[in-house]
Design a protein around this nucleic acid. Structure first.
Lengths: 337, 337
DNA sequence: TTGAAAGCGCTACCAT
DNA sequence: ATGGTAGCGCTTTCAA
């Protein structure tokens, strides 16, 4: 790295003080227009733009926000949620001069440590909290640090911002679709049970079954991965009284489930209907194509970023809901056999 | 953000100067062991660790590296390459006190601008260059800036580090597998033609066909997405003299191809064999499961990060190859019909 | 072995 | 409207 041009060079070349240069380039009032013009011209000629380091130090801000993914690598790799969510975040940060620091941690504990270090280093001004668990120690952490934070898909709560996409209506529509097709034994493949979204989806499933007067069997608990879905299929389809339909807590597991079912010689949806949750692109390209509930990770990312930057710049915590997730019927669900 | 503890507080509490605190915590020589102990104790008691902002300014380093993804969002979302690559990078950075700034840009031009801004802001100390094109203006950019950089999957070149996984052997093995199965008309679905990996894979395909005395038809050019693969299938399978086997430049397109083929009433591999490149997890869960060439994005990420940090810390540019990509035969390829 | 002090590049306050 | 200057938190000579 060469680059040695600083505000001092610009000030000298423009024949003004560095204070004036600073004011001019930050569009602060109190700078005569001709002066500003001259300064801008010189800055451009020299190819100068203020160093974030100096600015960071004096403003006590990093102009950076953080996201730590806490998932096993097998899930992270295949799950399109994050890429979309991140590009949503990015589309907002880009125009506001902020950058995203992304970290990945294999376990929740490790992720927690990384959040802690990001804060200790003063590397970031705020954080995104995804994959919230109950209880989630990160809430206390950000509270203690007084660090702006936005949590995804949780109910509104004190002190932090929240962004949420309603899952209930979409899941209700999905299950009603299955009930309408004549299904009575509708099983559920859930995720790790301390994730809040695992609970949300499971509860929605229970709610609809109860409303329809159907009995909810014990969910098969898996890990949100393709392999997990396959394991669930092995378990569920071997039962003497097997379900005629299965609602998987995410698309990855649903796809894994379908693959295993085929391998076991079962037809989907002939022998068993399978549905997922998320609405990943892949769902449209597997055979049979996947009935699911589509979510909007990009929009969540955008809203989350806006909320976070708002907090960083002094606004109070907010809560916002996006459009509810919606049912998409494809070929993996059909009449009960 | 509250947190007001600085090196000054620690110095005062420990009864030493800030210079000594700095030396003590950076394990610099010239600090008496008892003094160091005392300082460390005080620092821990106060919960202090040096602020990256101050350090950054005085050391003229950001302790941050950058990666700008330049792909259309549809591809980024589904392609597991990046998640794996990034977690590889992260596994190295984590232990060296560096962080990754991740940005996503929809086009190459926009990506270029973001690299430029990252540099102008002095936000980063080095960059990863993925999805290299020919020519790629980023090479000149980093050269001009004197910014350490590591490029992925390109030949060794002056001034920057490179990390590469051989594709030729794997692709050769794949095509020989197809030839052995009796295929003579083996088509290719390629990506945007200015990407270097598009060319690499296409050239490898041409090479093997030539060696086998087979004619290479004009590749169908697509965009590496699932939808692109489907479009390619629509094109290729409608031809009067359609291929009996197809090598797609990545798994996403291969999966999209297979889906479309099924939709058109063709059996895979009965009517047409299909193979991809990348070895994404999904390949094992589609029907028929995908024959492909598996790559090691995580390993590439690790090696790239090591090379980049090395350069940042003064080493000269290096080149390293990982284990070659290898053929994985599954169910989407079979005897020529 | 330790400390004083000069930066690093910027912002912001206070004079002028 | 403009400039001087004191920080911001740290590292790094250079003296003591």
């Amino acid at each position: 790295m060469k680059q040695r041009i600083t505000i001092v060079d610009v000030a000298r070349q423009a024949g003004v003080s560095i204070a004036t240069v600073s004011a001019a380039l930050n569009n602060r009032s109190g700078v005569a227009e001709p002066t500003r013009q001259r300064i801008v011209t010189v800055a451009e000629r020299l190819g100068w733009s203020p160093s974030l380091r100096g600015r960071s130090l004096s403003q006590e801000r990093a102009f950076t926000v953080g996201l730590v993914l806490q998932r096993e690598s097998s899930v992270i790799a295949s799950d399109p949620f994050f890429a979309s969510f991140i590009s949503g975040i990015e589309s907002v940060l880009e125009h506001r001069g902020y950058a995203l620091v992304l970290q990945v941690a294999p376990t929740r504990t490790r992720a927690f440590e990384r959040y802690r270090r990001l804060a200790a280093d003063h590397r970031i001004d705020g954080v995104f909290l995804t994959d919230v668990s109950v209880p989630d120690p990160r809430f206390e952490l950000v509270q203690d640090l007084g660090m702006p934070a936005v949590a995804i898909n949780v109910d509104p709560r004190e002190g932090i911002s929240t962004v949420r996409q309603d899952h209930e209506r979409g899941i209700a529509a999905l299950l009603e679709h299955l009930v309408d097709l004549g299904h009575r034994r509708i099983a559920h493949v859930s995720g790790p049970k301390d994730y809040i979204h695992t609970r949300q989806r499971e509860n929605a499933w229970r709610g609809v079954l109860a409303a329809a007067g159907l009995r909810a069997s014990t969910p098969v608990q898996e890990d949100f991965s393709l392999a997990g879905g396959s394991r669930a299929a092995a378990t569920l389809l071997a039962r003497r009284s097997r379900p005629t339909a299965v609602f998987c807590s995410n698309d990855l597991m649903a796809i894994g489930f379908i693959a295993k079912a085929a391998e076991m010689g079962m037809s989907v949806p002939g022998d068993v209907s399978v549905a997922g949750y998320d609405g990943i692109d892949f769902g449209a390209y597997v055979r049979p194509s996947l009935t699911t509930v589509t979510t909007a990770p990009h929009a969540l990312g955008e809203l989350a970023a806006k909320a976070l930057l708002g907090m960083i710049e002094g606004q109070t915590a907010s809560h916002v809901d996006t459009e509810p997730a919606t049912l998409v019927v494809r070929d993996s669900t059909g009449p009960a056999s």
